[in-house]
């Protein structure tokens, strides 16, 4: 079972939710796909760390073979290539490693070299296997890292919690591709509704079963809750705005492991999500 946790922007509590759900499960895998700013590991403080390099292929031209036809320059839709003064210039950070230029060069002047774009770090934190994708700064796209992260857990038998990057760009689509269920974390503000709407559209586009978790809830009116009612979106629960939770969170503590109250809250949430996921799978088959 793979559960993706997403939100339209950072700071809504996406990591708090995915970390605590993973910690609440008897045995689980936590995957941090927020590769530009992974911070789940700051909570789990995993031991036994193992690093794995993630490399992509970058083209390079052999000047002796290249005749300057520019087929490659015209082909590259990312505009990662320029041909200036009888020389091909490759912009490594712009290249998306599609391999097209290599394929289309009529002179076979292009070969590929490997370039590291980041690493995958895995370790153990109690009942949770923690896997973190880390993208080197300045790189064009973290998609290759996410692909690798998700490929490695395809056969996973334990529950998997995927902490997605914020937003709804293609890197998020990649992260939820294999998910059985999507949890959308929303803040109780008008702006929060706007962010929720973004990810809501995304999960609908991908036909992913989904529900909303209302975070930072106060006694007052909650525009995000209204939005859910109006669109008939399943509300999975509410996490109250709570100083204690905030303090634990900013100290890098996992609430579930420190406080029975939160253990219960996230256990219940987990049970509900599992039920929802089973229900969805059952009604789809």
């Amino acid at each position: 079972m793979k559960i993706a946790v997403l939100s339209g922007k950072g700071g809504t509590g996406k990591t708090l939710v995915s970390v605590n759900l993973a910690a609440a499960a008897p045995a689980s895998v936590y995957i941090d796909c927020d590769v530009e700013e992974p911070n789940g590991h700051l909570f789990f403080k995993p031991q036994d760390l193992k690093n794995q390099r993630v490399v992509v292929k970058i083209p390079q031209a052999d000047q002796k073979l290249c005749n300057g036809c520019r087929t490659c320059v015209d082909f590259c839709k990312f505009n990662a290539l320029a041909y200036i003064k009888d020389k091909l210039i490759v912009f490594n950070e712009v290249c998306h490693s599609c391999g097209g230029c290599l394929l289309f060069c009529p002179e076979k002047a292009i070969s590929e070299k490997e370039k590291e774009i980041g690493i995958i770090q895995s370790g153990i934190s109690g009942n949770v296997r923690v896997v973190t994708g880390i993208l080197n700064t300045g790189e064009a796209s973290g998609v290759p890292i996410i692909k690798r992260l998700l490929q490695d857990i395809r056969q996973e038998s334990e529950a998997v919690f995927i902490d997605c990057p914020p937003g709804s760009a293609c890197i998020v689509m990649e992260s939820i591709k294999d998910a059985d269920y999507c949890i959308l974390v929303a803040e109780p503000t008008i702006f929060g509704v706007h962010n929720l709407d973004m990810v809501y559209e995304l999960v609908r586009l991908f036909h992913k079963p989904h529900g909303v978790l209302l975070n930072k809830c106060l006694e007052e009116e909650n525009p995000a809750e209204e939005f859910c009612r109006k669109n008939q979106i399943k509300i999975l629960g509410k996490i109250p705005f709570d100083l204690e939770l905030g303090t634990m969170n900013s100290n890098g503590q996992i609430a579930v492991r420190h406080h029975p109250k939160y253990k219960e809250l996230f256990r219940n949430l987990l049970d509900l999500v599992i039920k929802e996921t089973r229900h969805e799978t059952a009604s789809n088959t």
Partner: peptide
């Protein structure tokens, strides 16, 4: 109108 690398293409 290109997705990325507009500056590179324009410069070319």
């Amino acid at each position: 109108s290109s997705q990325g690398g507009a500056g590179i293409k324009a410069a070319q």
